[in-house]
Amino acid sequence: MAGRPEGGASRILLCLTMHFGPHLLLAALEGLVTSAVLALTALGLSLVFGVMRVVNVAHGEFFMLGAVLTWAISTAIPGHPTVGFLAALVIAPLIVGAIALVAERLVLRRLNYNPEATIVATIGMLYIIQQLALSFYGPEARPVEPPFSYRILLPWFGYSGYKLSIIAASALLLVLTWLVLTHTKIGLIMRATQYDSETAQAFGIPVDRVYAGVFSLGAMLAAVAAVLIVPISQAHYLMGQDPLLLSFIVVIIGGLGSLRGTVVAAVLIGLSDGIISVFFSPTLAKIIATLLVAMVLVFRPQGLFGTASR
């Protein structure tokens, strides 16, 4: 599928050799910023589904809460925007994680993590969180000042240093998550719970506590992603919808529970979204992403990197 737009792009390349290169670079950079945020958000969704078998429809609202809290924290803390932002980067995910923990204990656990019931319950959570945000935060979209406004001067255009730092921060967090999953006891316990929760219990693993931790961690990943993106996109109480949809797309394409698949799919979707949006239209980008999902579901239902069955 990716071949066709590239074919179109190369024809444009012939016509517009002077302007195309810089344009493509700009589009790719924008795409990578999208990818970076998307990878973190989707990873949270993928972890929750992979380990708990819970489809968390409220995932986007944890993202929104992260953004709204960033605004609240950064306006509450006076002084240089960097201080407020750094405080938000630490505090907002912790608050969101705590909220997710309460939701998990109060709702999901009582439903015994039943797959169908938890979908309905998380839809309910979505509306509750959204309406609470509307009541307390209001319907306005509010900007958050970036922690620094350094511009990197490329030969063709200047580019926001902050945007590049989003890519770096996301990459760092993804590597960190990977290390935790593959090289620590906590990661081993999470993977054991994911593969076979009954046998995990027979080896002393408190599965329901693992679930609580994973649900909270998933929400925190979404919140961190939102903190990173809010200085360039504003905080709004309905902003959770797009990340939720795109996360599902990424997770389906990459394969549930596969970290590598999630990252690859996020880069693929983010880049194609950035590039196609710049050269054609954002609508075409969404059409192609959705088509890709349909293709994956038909030809490789387990996702590009997912395992066939467990």
């Binding site: 054991a192 593969y195 076979d196 009954e198 046998t199």
Partner: peptide
């Protein structure tokens, strides 16, 4: 059926 953590 052993129930190993097969991917590990």
């Amino acid at each position: 059926g052993r129930r190993l953590f097969a991917e590990m």
